[in-house]
Protein backbone atom coordinates (compact mmCIF):
# COMPACT_ATOMS: atom_id res chain seq x y z
CA UNK A 1 0.00 0.00 0.00
CA UNK A 2 1.54 3.30 -0.99
CA UNK A 3 1.09 6.74 0.44
CA UNK A 4 -0.97 7.73 -2.57
CA UNK A 5 -3.56 5.07 -1.92
CA UNK A 6 -3.94 4.63 1.81
CA UNK A 7 -6.18 1.86 3.06
CA UNK A 8 -9.45 3.44 3.95
CA UNK A 9 -11.88 2.02 6.46
CA UNK A 10 -14.52 0.01 4.69
CA UNK A 11 -12.17 -0.90 1.88
CA UNK A 12 -14.88 -1.20 -0.73
CA UNK A 13 -13.75 2.31 -1.70
CA UNK A 14 -12.50 2.25 -5.26
CA UNK A 15 -8.73 2.24 -4.86
CA UNK A 16 -8.17 1.12 -1.29
CA UNK A 17 -6.00 -1.83 -2.34
CA UNK A 18 -4.34 -0.43 -5.45
CA UNK A 19 -0.57 -0.92 -5.17
CA UNK A 20 1.51 2.07 -6.20
CA UNK A 21 3.16 0.32 -9.13
CA UNK A 22 -0.15 -0.18 -10.91
CA UNK A 23 -2.01 2.49 -12.83
CA UNK A 24 -5.52 1.16 -12.57
CA UNK A 25 -7.45 -1.45 -10.56
CA UNK A 26 -8.09 -3.29 -13.81
CA UNK A 27 -4.38 -3.50 -14.56
CA UNK A 28 -3.67 -4.78 -11.05
CA UNK A 29 -6.41 -7.40 -11.26
CA UNK A 30 -5.19 -8.51 -14.69
CA UNK A 31 -1.59 -8.89 -13.52
CA UNK A 32 -2.65 -10.87 -10.45
CA UNK A 33 -4.81 -13.14 -12.52
CA UNK A 34 -2.11 -13.81 -15.10
CA UNK A 35 0.26 -14.68 -12.24
CA UNK A 36 -2.37 -17.05 -10.87
CA UNK A 37 -2.75 -18.77 -14.23
CA UNK A 38 1.02 -19.18 -14.46
CA UNK A 39 0.96 -20.78 -11.00
CA UNK A 40 -1.91 -23.06 -12.04
CA UNK A 41 0.19 -24.09 -15.05
CA UNK A 42 2.97 -25.26 -12.71
CA UNK A 43 0.37 -27.12 -10.63
CA UNK A 44 -0.93 -28.93 -13.70
CA UNK A 45 2.63 -29.84 -14.70
CA UNK A 46 3.39 -31.13 -11.19
CA UNK A 47 0.32 -33.37 -11.17
CA UNK A 48 0.97 -34.48 -14.75
CA UNK A 49 4.06 -36.36 -13.53
CA UNK A 50 1.91 -38.41 -11.17
CA UNK A 51 -0.73 -38.98 -13.83
CA UNK A 52 1.96 -40.20 -16.19
CA UNK A 53 3.31 -42.52 -13.49
CA UNK A 54 -0.22 -43.88 -13.12
CA UNK A 55 -0.53 -44.53 -16.87
CA UNK A 56 2.87 -46.24 -16.94
CA UNK A 57 1.93 -48.50 -14.02
CA UNK A 58 -1.34 -49.25 -15.74
CA UNK A 59 0.47 -50.07 -18.96
CA UNK A 60 3.04 -52.32 -17.26
CA UNK A 61 0.71 -54.13 -14.86
CA UNK A 62 -2.81 -53.86 -16.32
CA UNK A 63 -4.26 -56.83 -14.45
CA UNK A 64 -2.77 -55.82 -11.11
CA UNK A 65 -4.25 -52.30 -11.41
CA UNK A 66 -7.67 -53.72 -12.31
CA UNK A 67 -7.50 -56.12 -9.39
CA UNK A 68 -6.23 -53.65 -6.80
CA UNK A 69 -8.55 -50.76 -7.69
CA UNK A 70 -11.54 -52.92 -6.70
CA UNK A 71 -10.44 -52.43 -3.10
CA UNK A 72 -10.96 -48.68 -3.23
CA UNK A 73 -14.25 -47.42 -1.87
CA UNK A 74 -16.20 -46.25 -4.90
CA UNK A 75 -19.02 -44.82 -2.82
CA UNK A 76 -16.63 -42.69 -0.76
CA UNK A 77 -14.93 -41.53 -3.95
CA UNK A 78 -18.29 -40.72 -5.54
CA UNK A 79 -19.48 -38.76 -2.50
CA UNK A 80 -16.23 -36.81 -2.52
CA UNK A 81 -16.67 -36.02 -6.21
CA UNK A 82 -20.13 -34.57 -5.58
CA UNK A 83 -18.81 -32.70 -2.51
CA UNK A 84 -15.97 -31.12 -4.50
CA UNK A 85 -18.20 -30.18 -7.44
CA UNK A 86 -20.69 -28.57 -5.05
CA UNK A 87 -17.87 -26.70 -3.32
CA UNK A 88 -16.73 -25.47 -6.72
CA UNK A 89 -20.22 -24.05 -7.35
CA UNK A 90 -20.31 -22.30 -3.96
CA UNK A 91 -16.83 -20.90 -4.68
CA UNK A 92 -17.96 -19.58 -8.07
CA UNK A 93 -20.99 -18.01 -6.37
CA UNK A 94 -18.70 -16.41 -3.76
CA UNK A 95 -16.71 -14.78 -6.58
CA UNK A 96 -19.96 -13.66 -8.19
CA UNK A 97 -21.15 -12.16 -4.88
CA UNK A 98 -17.89 -10.20 -4.73
CA UNK A 99 -18.45 -8.99 -8.29
CA UNK A 100 -21.88 -7.65 -7.37
CA UNK A 101 -20.63 -6.36 -3.99
CA UNK A 102 -22.74 -8.51 -1.68
CA UNK A 103 -20.43 -9.06 1.30
CA UNK A 104 -22.80 -11.21 3.44
CA UNK A 105 -23.20 -13.54 0.46
CA UNK A 106 -19.42 -13.75 -0.08
CA UNK A 107 -19.02 -14.82 3.55
CA UNK A 108 -21.90 -17.30 3.36
CA UNK A 109 -20.60 -18.97 0.19
CA UNK A 110 -17.01 -19.03 1.47
CA UNK A 111 -18.16 -20.74 4.68
CA UNK A 112 -20.06 -23.31 2.61
CA UNK A 113 -16.97 -23.94 0.48
CA UNK A 114 -14.80 -24.39 3.59
CA UNK A 115 -17.46 -26.73 5.01
CA UNK A 116 -17.44 -28.90 1.89
CA UNK A 117 -13.65 -28.97 1.98
CA UNK A 118 -13.84 -30.34 5.53
CA UNK A 119 -16.43 -32.93 4.48
CA UNK A 120 -14.02 -34.02 1.74
CA UNK A 121 -11.17 -34.41 4.23
CA UNK A 122 -13.36 -36.33 6.70
CA UNK A 123 -14.41 -38.81 3.99
CA UNK A 124 -10.75 -39.06 2.96
CA UNK A 125 -9.82 -39.72 6.60
CA UNK A 126 -12.18 -42.69 6.78
CA UNK A 127 -10.91 -44.02 3.46
CA UNK A 128 -7.28 -43.73 4.52
CA UNK A 129 -7.93 -45.33 7.94
CA UNK A 130 -9.59 -48.30 6.23
CA UNK A 131 -6.62 -48.68 3.86
CA UNK A 132 -4.11 -48.43 6.72
CA UNK A 133 -6.09 -50.91 8.82
CA UNK A 134 -6.12 -53.45 5.96
CA UNK A 135 -2.40 -52.96 5.31
CA UNK A 136 -3.07 -51.69 1.79
CA UNK A 137 -0.06 -49.37 1.89
CA UNK A 138 2.70 -48.34 -0.50
CA UNK A 139 5.91 -50.24 -1.05
CA UNK A 140 7.47 -51.98 1.91
CA UNK A 141 4.61 -50.98 4.20
CA UNK A 142 2.20 -53.15 2.24
CA UNK A 143 0.85 -55.93 4.42
CA UNK A 144 -2.64 -56.70 3.10
CA UNK A 145 -1.76 -60.40 2.73
CA UNK A 146 -1.38 -60.56 6.52
CA UNK A 147 -4.91 -59.22 6.85
CA UNK A 148 -6.39 -61.86 4.59
CA UNK A 149 -6.50 -59.90 1.35
CA UNK A 150 -4.89 -61.75 -1.49
CA UNK A 151 -4.50 -59.24 -4.29
CA UNK A 152 -2.61 -60.75 -7.23
CA UNK A 153 0.41 -59.09 -8.81
CA UNK A 154 2.20 -56.17 -7.20
CA UNK A 155 -0.58 -54.20 -5.49
CA UNK A 156 1.91 -52.26 -3.34
CA UNK A 157 2.77 -50.31 -6.51
CA UNK A 158 -0.87 -49.43 -7.10
CA UNK A 159 -1.29 -48.29 -3.51
CA UNK A 160 1.90 -46.23 -3.81
CA UNK A 161 0.46 -44.26 -6.73
CA UNK A 162 -2.94 -44.12 -5.02
CA UNK A 163 -1.48 -42.56 -1.88
CA UNK A 164 0.82 -40.22 -3.82
CA UNK A 165 -1.95 -38.86 -6.03
CA UNK A 166 -4.73 -38.59 -3.44
CA UNK A 167 -2.19 -37.46 -0.82
CA UNK A 168 -0.87 -34.58 -2.91
CA UNK A 169 -4.44 -33.69 -3.82
CA UNK A 170 -5.43 -33.86 -0.13
CA UNK A 171 -2.59 -31.48 0.77
CA UNK A 172 -4.01 -29.10 -1.83
CA UNK A 173 -7.43 -29.33 -0.18
CA UNK A 174 -5.86 -28.53 3.21
CA UNK A 175 -4.01 -25.56 1.74
CA UNK A 176 -7.30 -24.57 0.13
CA UNK A 177 -9.00 -24.58 3.54
CA UNK A 178 -6.22 -22.28 4.76
CA UNK A 179 -6.46 -19.71 1.96
CA UNK A 180 -10.27 -19.83 1.97
CA UNK A 181 -10.20 -19.00 5.68
CA UNK A 182 -7.83 -16.10 4.96
CA UNK A 183 -10.20 -14.78 2.26
CA UNK A 184 -13.14 -15.23 4.64
CA UNK A 185 -11.40 -13.15 7.32
CA UNK A 186 -10.72 -10.41 4.78
CA UNK A 187 -14.31 -10.54 3.53
CA UNK A 188 -15.33 -10.18 7.15
CA UNK A 189 -13.40 -6.90 7.28
CA UNK A 190 -15.31 -5.73 4.22
CA UNK A 191 -12.28 -5.64 1.95
CA UNK A 192 -14.01 -6.92 -1.16
CA UNK A 193 -16.31 -5.21 -3.59
CA UNK A 194 -16.88 -4.84 -7.34
CA UNK A 195 -13.66 -2.83 -7.79
CA UNK A 196 -11.44 -5.17 -5.77
CA UNK A 197 -11.95 -8.90 -5.35
CA UNK A 198 -8.68 -10.32 -6.68
CA UNK A 199 -8.00 -12.59 -3.65
CA UNK A 200 -11.48 -14.09 -3.85
CA UNK A 201 -11.10 -14.71 -7.55
CA UNK A 202 -7.58 -16.16 -7.40
CA UNK A 203 -8.36 -18.43 -4.47
CA UNK A 204 -11.42 -19.43 -6.50
CA UNK A 205 -9.22 -20.33 -9.48
CA UNK A 206 -7.02 -22.43 -7.17
CA UNK A 207 -10.05 -24.17 -5.71
CA UNK A 208 -11.47 -24.96 -9.16
CA UNK A 209 -8.12 -26.48 -10.13
CA UNK A 210 -8.25 -28.74 -7.07
CA UNK A 211 -11.70 -29.79 -8.31
CA UNK A 212 -10.39 -30.27 -11.87
CA UNK A 213 -7.65 -32.63 -10.68
CA UNK A 214 -10.15 -34.68 -8.70
CA UNK A 215 -12.37 -34.91 -11.80
CA UNK A 216 -9.53 -36.89 -13.42
CA UNK A 217 -8.33 -38.71 -10.29
CA UNK A 218 -11.73 -40.17 -9.44
CA UNK A 219 -12.43 -42.17 -12.61
CA UNK A 220 -8.78 -43.18 -13.04
CA UNK A 221 -8.21 -44.51 -9.52
CA UNK A 222 -11.66 -45.59 -8.40
CA UNK A 223 -13.74 -46.46 -11.42
CA UNK A 224 -11.75 -47.43 -14.46
CA UNK A 225 -12.05 -51.02 -15.60
Amino acid sequence: MSDHHPTRPGGSEPHAFLAHHFNTPGQQAGAAKLGMWAFLATEVLMFSGLFLAYFIIRMQYPEMVLGAHEYLNKTAGGINTVVLITSSVTMALAVRSAQVGDTPAIKRYLLMTIGFAFVFMVVKYFEYSAKIEHGMLPGKFYSAHEHGYDIPGLPHIFFAIYFCMTGLHGIHVLVGIGVLTWVYLRANKGHFGPSYYTPVENVGLYWHLVDLIWIFLFPLLYLVK
Binding site: T24, Q27, A29, V82, R96, V100, Y196, Y197
Partner: peptide
Protein backbone atom coordinates in the same frame (compact mmCIF):
# COMPACT_ATOMS: atom_id res chain seq x y z
CA UNK B 1 -9.96 2.18 -16.88
CA UNK B 2 -10.99 3.27 -13.40
CA UNK B 3 -13.14 0.19 -12.92
CA UNK B 4 -12.56 -3.53 -13.11
CA UNK B 5 -14.52 -4.83 -16.05
CA UNK B 6 -15.49 -8.42 -15.67
CA UNK B 7 -18.29 -10.40 -17.13
CA UNK B 8 -20.71 -11.31 -14.36
CA UNK B 9 -22.46 -14.58 -15.09
CA UNK B 10 -26.03 -15.01 -13.83
CA UNK B 11 -26.59 -17.50 -10.99
CA UNK B 12 -28.71 -19.61 -13.33
CA UNK B 13 -25.70 -20.31 -15.58
CA UNK B 14 -23.72 -21.60 -12.59
CA UNK B 15 -26.65 -23.83 -11.64
CA UNK B 16 -26.88 -25.22 -15.18
CA UNK B 17 -23.19 -26.07 -15.17
CA UNK B 18 -23.61 -27.63 -11.70
CA UNK B 19 -26.43 -29.83 -13.04
CA UNK B 20 -24.38 -30.83 -16.07
CA UNK B 21 -21.41 -31.76 -13.85
CA UNK B 22 -23.60 -33.93 -11.61
CA UNK B 23 -25.16 -35.69 -14.61
CA UNK B 24 -21.71 -36.32 -16.10
CA UNK B 25 -20.44 -37.66 -12.74
CA UNK B 26 -23.38 -40.07 -12.64
CA UNK B 27 -22.56 -41.03 -16.23
CA UNK B 28 -18.92 -41.78 -15.34
Amino acid sequence: FEEVHEHISPVSSYMKVFGALLVLTALT
